[in-house]
Amino acid sequence: MGRFLLLTLMLIAAAACSRTEDNILRDKTLGAGEAFCITAAGDTGIICGGTIGGKPYIAFLDKKLNKLSEYSPGINGTITSLVTSDDRIIAAGSSEGMMFIAVVDFSGNTLGDTLIQSGFTVGHTSLCPTGSGSFMALGSSADDTIRSVPYGLAFREVNNKGEVLKSFDTIPGSFIKAGNICCDNAGNYYIALSRIGTGGKIKATVASFDQMLRNIWETELYNNPEFGASSLDIAAGSSGDIFVSGFTEFSVNNGTGRNAFAAAIGQRGQIKWKRYLEFTNSAVSQFENAAGTLYVLNSAC
């Protein structure tokens, strides 16, 4: 049975959400598929991205969630990250194991797109502004299953036309998966990562890279090597701290469950605090508001 791309705007003011219907402002079903990313379109509405019918898909909605336009190229794949730049949207995702970058105007017209091949499979791509008018795209595997295949991180700096300005791949020789990427005011990059831990379980980490994509530090976030953990989202806070969210596993009667977590990391890689937010959940997205409050979205909300 196909899943539906269901876009629901909710009033979420805490790490663990309330599941009462009173919190739902509006919802919109767009078709059989999955939604992976959402961003604001100035003060006119929102843009969401994902996949419908196995194709990359972007929907442009007004504030009442009426669909204004859409974009879906004639290739298989998905959209996993969106950023806006003046009169256009930079979208990133994957297609047939390659990184996919598309530039689209707000009417859904294609301004440019490209497929970028690496020496490993790319199933997820994240975007962040660099602060100099360009955007850093980070691609990696999207699979939580560890296999005997090449893994790596594909860095591609692109301009607002989707043209590649800089390329760099790192291939560690073992499983590695990137969640999202962010950049601070000094131009350093921070990545939510997952690697192989003790006993072959996936472990959650966070890593920092400088402007030349040289690794500065990497900090492990998981506590129990007998259970897996994964970092999913990352954001640079106004205080200089880096916020990371994801999930850790724990034992239940019929196997393992997932527990959502969020953590604050200092600029030298030290863990300042870590909170377990909710059982049977994963913390997939977050942002800090102007008052310094961290909002965390759990996937089961």
Rank of each mutant, 00 (worst) to 15 (best):
T248N: 08
T125N: 03
D169T: 11
G187E: 09
G53E: 09
Q270R: 10
T80D: 02
D62G: 03
Y71H: 10
T121E: 12
L165W: 02
L68Q: 15
K161E: 10
Y190N: 11
Y151H: 11
G45D: 11
G108D: 07
A59H: 10
E157Q: 13
W217Y: 14
Q267A: 11
T125R: 02
T114N: 10
G123V: 00
I242M: 13
R156E: 10
N185E: 13
S238F: 01
A178N: 08
F279N: 15
G269D: 09
S231T: 08
S132H: 06
I271F: 00
H124I: 04
E70K: 04
R268T: 13
I46F: 15
S85N: 14
M98P: 00
L11A: 12
G31T: 05
V164K: 06
E288Y: 01
E21T: 06
E220N: 10
Y57E: 05
T110R: 12
Y71V: 03
L111R: 15
A91L: 07
S231F: 04
I79P: 02
D86S: 14
D144E: 13
V164Y: 03
I52F: 01
C183H: 06
T84E: 13
V122Q: 13
L153T: 09
I242T: 11
A142Y: 09
T121W: 01
A13M: 02
I89Q: 01
A300F: 04
S282W: 03
C183G: 04
V149I: 14
F120R: 15
N281I: 01
A235C: 10
I171N: 14
